[in-house]
């Protein structure tokens, strides 16, 4: 009896629709983690416009995605959080056509809602004993965070060794920006530096924001490109167009990105 059930179960599986990882009905998008919510919506819009299309998205640190693409991952579109990793992929001849900047982001400091370390202003990040979490240097936002810290060090009202002290307070180098959000959200870290767009509706109630003034902030330009290794170049181009279209730009703006075109 159990044997029959097992055979029946296996037979059922055989009729289950196979995942469309490649082929004309599937589009694979590699995008930086900070784009998770915005690109999921864009993907759904594209699916509605193209009957039978499945958009598969892989969200990870841009550095990780670039390495995977270099190692032969068959993605159709790559959206990076900085020019560095797009240039990395481009230098290896893996891009089809040109890259376009489709959004900008800026940094913000976050602390847990309960603010255990009593951080009232950016200078407090350098206080002894404050647990700061940053993304690793190879991650775009990690590099930008360190640049912003350097800018703040030279600002009036900040001590000479501000950046050094904050970096000494770092207790973990996360491998993507959402790791930083998670640690702060959980209350394990006293402070973290992330993109403004990473304070999503889900995490907003759990954190407090500390704005970093424009002149010390880093404006991160996000480039997007179609990849040569993709199996669906036409749909890939459609995805990029959608991202750059007024509708796509509006979606990005709604998620606290800075649009590049007027939505």
């Amino acid at each position: 009896m159990r044997g029959l059930l097992l055979i029946a179960f296996c037979a059922l599986l055989a009729f289950a629709p196979p995942p469309a990882w490649s082929g004309p009905g599937a589009l694979t998008v590699f995008a930086a983690v900070s784009l998770t919510e915005a690109f999921t919506i864009v993907g759904k819009i594209l699916e509605q416009r193209h009957a039978g299309l499945r958009v598969q998205q892989s969200f990870a640190g841009s550095q990780q995605l670039a390495t995977q693409i270099e190692q032969g991952a068959r993605a159709d579109v790559f959206a990076s959080a900085d020019q560095r990793w797009m240039a990395y992929v481009q230098a290896r001849g893996l891009i089809a056509g040109a890259t376009s900047e489709f959004a900008r982001n800026r940094l913000v400091a976050i602390v847990p809602r309960g603010n255990p370390a009593r951080i009232g202003r950016l200078q407090d990040l350098a206080n002894p004993g404050v647990k700061v979490v940053l993304a690793a240097d190879a991650v775009p936002v990690g590099r930008y965070s360190r640049v912003a810290l350097e800018k703040l060090t030279r600002a009036p009202g900040f001590p000479q060794d501000y950046a050094a002290r904050v970096l000494r307070n770092v207790v973990s180098h996360e491998e993507n920006v959402r790791g930083v959000v998670a640690k702060v959200q959980l209350g394990e870290a006293d402070a973290g530096v992330v993109y403004r767009s990473d304070v999503t509706p889900t995490s907003a109630p759990l954190v407090l924001l500390l704005e970093i003034p424009e002149r010390f902030n880093v404006v991160a330009g996000y480039p997007i490109a179609v990849l040569k290794a993709g199996t669906n170049p036409d749909t890939a181009a459609a995805f990029v167009s959608l991202v750059l279209s007024p509708l796509g730009q509006r979606v990005l703006r709604d998620h606290h990105f800075v649009p590049v075109k007027d939505p």
């Binding site: 550095q63 990780q64 690793a136 770092v170 207790v171 973990s172 180098h173 996360e174 491998e175």
Partner: peptide
């Protein structure tokens, strides 16, 4: 977490380097 010298064991170092 991941901090060289404190919590970055070899597997973590490999993973970070891989990126």
């Amino acid at each position: 977490g991941n901090l060289p010298g404190v919590t970055q064991t070899m597997p973590l170092a490999v993973y970070i380097a891989l990126q």
